[in-house]
Design a protein around this nucleic acid. Structure first.
Lengths: 180, 180
DNA sequence: GTCTATACGAAGATAGAC
DNA sequence: GTCTATCTTCGTATAGAC
């Protein structure tokens, strides 16, 4: 995937602004200014404002899903679930803006980039669901996966947004103690 | 608290639209039209668009917190936590639009109604934190509360948005199995 | 491929009638 | 207290220069 420096600057600036203010509340002027490029360049590179947003979501979900799959690869049962929780927290720390975006957009249905955001559920939460189904065949995989994902996600955001002085290990311990 | 019929119609219509599209993406025209009132009435009753939003959040948090406190009143330990999870799911079912709003806005910092949304953390999640502190004095109360709250919230939204055919008892069982 | 300038529509807010 | 009409700003998107 070839990505120019301009493109990357725009994505980075947009993600940071949108995570904090929301998508519609962030203007292309703001994004271009924060990225240090002209407004026209945003439209040249992404076609439209919502095109930019779709690109951000698609790339973020792909990265998150790949990381989760790699982390649980070869593991089974409880080990696999612990690895997934740890990796999700690691990814939240590495990309907090994307985490905010996920939690804000996953359950909305009236947005133009709905198809892109659907991947969060199907791919990222799906990684949890696969391991749940294998570990606890008697439980409902998708509801349990949502609960696990939600526990790690909200604890991770609580950590980064409101208690950044805590360590990853603190949060990991709190989540694993809760879900065991 | 005296609330006129017009006021209630506006709040109801706004909540439904905003939960689905986001706040800035929903126009006052849309809200007024869905509520069956004129645009001017929205501004007469709430002063501004963000004033309307603050009212929605404040009232929703008050209702949710009161319900959670009532549900866990007189209970302790695991009983209290089970009651909180059940009541949170019940409230999510009764007010799914408000639940979507909460999850979308709680971790944003760059919005004008930030002071109102802060109450979600302090009051609603705080109810969980109080019980956690009492039940497991050795654990971190706020991180554990966030994990519990997140498990119930995301499982509840997964249920209502994507699997509405499931029952409250299904979801309750999945969440409680996960967090025990 | 990136910039500046501009067109054009959308949306928050207000004034005044009823 | 609610409505209609209007003002004004802001924001997406495009055209064309460099």
């Amino acid at each position: 995937m070839r990505t120019t420096a301009t493109r990357d600057h725009i994505v980075e600036a947009a993600l940071s602004l949108v995570a904090d203010r929301g998508f519609t509340a962030t203007s292309v002027d703001d994004i271009a200014s924060a990225a240090g490029v002209a407004k026209g360049s945003v439209f040249y590179n992404f076609g439209s404002k919502s095109g930019l947003f779709e690109a951000i979501i698609t790339e973020g979900v792909a990265r998150l899903t790949a990381a989760l799959r790699a982390a649980s690869d070869g593991l089974h049962g409880r080990d696999a679930l612990e690895a997934l929780v740890s990796e999700l927290l690691t990814q939240i720390r590495a990309h907090p803006d994307f985490a905010k975006l996920m939690v804000a957009e996953t359950f909305r249905t009236g947005r133009s980039w709905q198809d892109s955001i659907r991947l969060v559920r199907e791919e990222s939460m799906g990684t949890f669901a696969v391991v749940v189904a294998e570990t606890w065949p008697d439980r409902d995989a998708s509801l349990t996966a949502a609960a696990l994902f939600g526990a790690a996600l909200l604890a991770g955001l609580e950590w980064l947004v409101f208690q950044p002085e805590r360590t990853l290990e603190d949060v990991r311990a709190a989540v694993l103690a809760t879900v065991h």
